[in-house]
């Protein structure tokens, strides 16, 4: 299963312009292209934090599917985002969501958002999702 086909072409993800970027067995990267509508401040053009949360929530949800190799119906239970620095205006932000553990009903996720170097991230996230259908044993 590849995550690329699971990205919604409608709704909030589509409005943000989220696009598939890369994936591995337990992580998925999405790209959030900069646009003026997403700014926190019209003058500086610095991206608001809301789009970063949406990016990371979406990438983490796809990582849960990627890890289990199937589409998993799930709902976010909680999500924590630490903002380390402002994203550089005009640059695409990449969000890497990783699912590092799945139990029968809960998926644990973490991730980073970065605009150039993954070792100099814009934000760190950690969260949990509840799976709406049980994982087969």
């Amino acid at each position: 299963m590849v995550a690329a086909g699971l990205i919604s072409q409608a709704g909030h993800s589509d409005w943000l312009g989220l696009a598939f970027h890369a994936e591995s067995d337990d992580w998925v990267e999405l790209a959030l292209p900069w646009k003026a509508e997403l700014a926190a401040d019209a003058q500086s053009g610095v991206l608001a934090s809301g789009p970063i949360i949406s990016l990371m929530d979406t990438a983490a949800g796809l990582a849960v599917c990627r890890r289990q190799n199937r589409i998993v119906q799930q709902v976010t239970v909680d999500l924590r985002v630490d903002y380390m620095r402002a994203a550089r205006p005009g640059r695409t932000v990449i969000g890497r969501g990783e699912c590092y553990k799945v139990t029968r009903s809960i998926a644990f996720v973490r991730g980073v958002a970065y605009d150039e170097d993954i070792d100099d991230p814009v934000a760190h996230v950690a969260g949990t999702f509840i799976l709406l259908h049980e994982t087969p044993a």
């Binding site: 934090s49 929530d57 979406t58």
Partner: peptide, 22 residues
Amino acid sequence: GPRVLGRPGFWHGGAISGFLEM
């Protein structure tokens, strides 16, 4: 509206988060 839609019939969790933050 379509701009805040997540899974069909529901608000996107990220849009709700951005709204809470604002």
